[in-house]
Each structure stands twice: as C-alpha cells, then as structure tokens.
C-alpha cells in the first residue's frame, strides 16, 4: 500500500487534517475521504470542469491537482456556498433562470461562475462565455447559465 502523508487544509472554512496518498487527487480526497461529493468526476483530463473547486481564490480542476499539493490551502467547494441553509445569490439565480437541467455539471459551473464574479463583479456576456468555457454542459443549458450569472452580477452593487 502507498504510504500516506498527513496534510492540513481549510475546506469551506473548516480546518481539516487528512492522510492522503501522494497519488490521490484533490478530487478523490474531497469525494472519498471528506465525503464532499458535490464536486463531480467526469473527464479526468481537465476538459469538462465538473470537478471545479476554488483553491486559494482561483478556480482549478481538482482532477488535475494532487491532494498533497493542497497542503495548507483554502479550498472552497459547492457545499461551502450556501450559508445557514440559504442559497447563495448565484445558486438562487441558477434555479430562477433555469440554469439547471440534469445538474451534474452545475457544481462546477457555479464554482467557475463564483470565481469569475469574485474577480470581475460585472462581466460582459463575452466574459461570462469565456469564464465558463471550461465547464461543459451536455444538456446545452448555456443560455440560461449566462442569464443566471449576468443576473447575479446585476444584483451586485456597482
């Protein structure tokens, strides 16, 4: 068996210490060791974005990051967005605008959108298109996802 190494990281505002195998990705550790299954697995080559999480303020494909690389990092997953049982404005907008069909890509879409709005609170439509281009939606719900992100940005004070 592979030797495991303890790492400490902050996940959704909560300090966690977990023993990880060096060959396990952040995605595997989130899903299998920390039971945070909101982050999804699909392509495992950084193309689909279903596994998008935010590490130290930036969106990353957690399938392409070893968990051990996240030692000391701040990690935000979809489970960390709703506070006190209330949906975040983005989550609510995804529901209101119909940005969700099967839902499998949605955690990744929302995390990419979250990172986009954190950096650029009032993106243009083109910036939104580019901002989530790394998140495939096979249901083809892109128009509604754009609407949800733009509506969220509208709600943010300029």
């Amino acid at each position: 068996m592979t030797r495991t190494v303890p790492i400490s990281l902050n996940v959704n505002g909560r300090p966690r210490t977990v023993d990880v195998a060096p060959n396990h990705t952040l995605l595997e550790v989130l899903r299998e060791d920390l039971d945070l299954t909101g982050t999804k697995e699909c392509c495992l080559v950084g193309e689909c974005g279903a596994c998008t999480v935010i590490v130290d303020g930036r969106s990353v494909d957690s399938c392409l990051m070893l968990a051990i690389e996240a030692d000391g990092a701040d990690v935000l997953t979809v489970e960390g967005l709703a506070a006190d049982g209330r949906l975040s404005p983005l989550q609510a907008a995804f529901l209101d605008k119909g940005g969700v069909q099967c839902g499998f890509c949605i955690p990744g879409q929302i995390m990419s959108a979250h990172a986009l709005l954190a950096e650029n609170p009032h993106p243009s439509r083109a910036e939104v298109e580019e901002g989530i281009a790394g998140n495939l939606c096979r249901c083809g719900c892109y128009e509604q996802i754009f609407e949800a992100i733009l509506a969220t940005a509208e709600g943010v004070e300029r």
């Binding site: 990419s112 790394g134 998140n135």
Partner: peptide
C-alpha cells in the same frame, strides 16, 4: 491555453 481552470494552474 486551455480553460480558465487550466490557466490558473
């Protein structure tokens, strides 16, 4: 180069 997520890494 890749998507936003890729460019962040």
């Amino acid at each position: 180069v890749g998507s936003v997520q890729i460019r962040n890494r």
